[in-house]
Design a protein around this nucleic acid. Structure first.
Lengths: 227, 227
DNA sequence: AAAATGCAAGAGCAGTGCTCTCGCTATGGC
DNA sequence: GCCATAGCGAGAGCACTGCTCTTGCATTTT
């Protein structure tokens, strides 16, 4: 009865509870969380979990997708805020991403850290994975179409053609260097956050890491011609 | 007899063989290599390995130190090569680091990827860990003392003081922004390599990743004022 | 020569991912 | 309303993991 079915609903709830508990374990144990331990916390046999997730990797994949979506919406929300300049808008986005990462380092490590050996990201993850860089690209594109981008060295060589192909996804006529700029900013953002989170800053910059991060990102923003 | 002792020598050889086999396993299984499997390959009981390494983490630490030293000497060798300009010298170093990473991605992941949960880097690792950034800093410093560095925005704020403290390690009178510049270049280098290795470039730049890497690093080099 | 030390092997413990089988219960067709 | 079906939970079990402890042996030191 009940066309959608009671069964389907409790299944959805159960799936959600497992993910919630798993996320909690992720925060303490990192990517090598134990499926059995999660099952214990949920209060069921470990074998029962396999009714909801085909494997531990499947469970991790679900968490990865959620993490991508989470940081993606954080970035999009920051981008949507009013800002005086394009540079400010990108800086606000950068801080939003950094704040998200600091709030849950293991989730950051899960999606931007070294991939789990043997784990191959399934197709479902590539959509959510692109949200942050799309947000950055949108900022750059809007600045460009409004004629507010300072000229910047044009990419040349074979990779420039590959960038051109990607640029088509943003609408025809998008200049390749725009994609290159967005990717530069994106990778510098990721590099700065990862360096901070993975301990590369230890015993150098300890107190004012936020300030140092902003210094770095200001450089990145200037490099791609945003003012 | 034999003051140093035969025992000590075979022990050193055994230690080396375990590390060699472990490095081979690292290349295929990544950071979650199995100590038992390594022991099997070496041809001894797993319990015997504990005579040489107190724990699996200890074995990993040994591999981490070796990896840091390996990439460090690669960077230093590249820096020592004759180059027309400071920018070229830093670019050559960058390519050397990238080539090293591409040759053995798991070793890169081991030292620059997400830290193994629960693993705390012991004191022995921080020395070798700094070799690459020291090489970069040396390039920047030499260019600076020779007066070949284009003026660059001076860091301000609390983190600038922390940079100043680090700068003292490079000799008195070293300007803080020099350290900031070296770190910027270093993190951008790491970010670019990690992005490429950890799959962030998938389905965008596929063929000419080397060219794209150079494009990014040229930006980084220009940003810190090297010509 | 005797005592002390270093080493390797084996058994064993607690934990892991995952599979399979067994009952039970809610669901959908008649 | 009845009944076959399909989904679900639990338990046992397999092969594996890191690590510890004990036992026997070889080597080194006294």
């Amino acid at each position: 009865m009940s066309a959608s079915g009671v069964r389907a609903r409790v299944r959805a709830e159960m799936t959600e509870e497992i993910k919630t508990v798993a996320r909690r374990h992720l925060a303490s144990d990192g990517a090598n969380l134990s499926l059995r331990a999660v099952a214990r916390d949920v209060g069921m046999a470990s074998s029962a979990v396999y009714r909801y997730f085909a494997s531990r990797d499947d469970l991790l994949t679900a968490l990865i997708i959620e993490a991508y979506d989470s940081v993606g919406s954080a970035a999009e929300a920051a981008m949507a805020k009013p800002a005086d300049t394009d540079a400010d808008r990108l800086l606000v986005l950068s801080h939003a991403v950094r704040d998200w990462a600091l709030a849950d380092p293991h989730q950051w490590a899960l999606i931007y850290g070294s991939p789990v050996p043997g784990y191959q990201a399934p197709q479902d993850t590539i959509g959510p994975a692109t949200r942050v860089i799309f947000a950055i690209a949108k900022i750059v594109q809007e600045a460009f179409t409004a004629g507010r981008v300072v000229p910047v060295p044009e990419p040349t060589g074979r990779y420039a053609e590959e960038l051109a192909a990607v640029a088509e996804q943003f609408g025809p006529g998008t200049p390749p260097r725009l994609v290159g700029s967005a990717m530069s900013a994106y990778f510098q953002l990721n590099g700065a956050v990862s360096a901070e989170l993975f301990g590369q800053l230890n015993q150098t910059v300890e107190d004012d890491r936020r300030g140092f991060f902003e210094f770095q990102m200001r450089g990145a923003v200037a490099f791609i011609g945003l003012t």
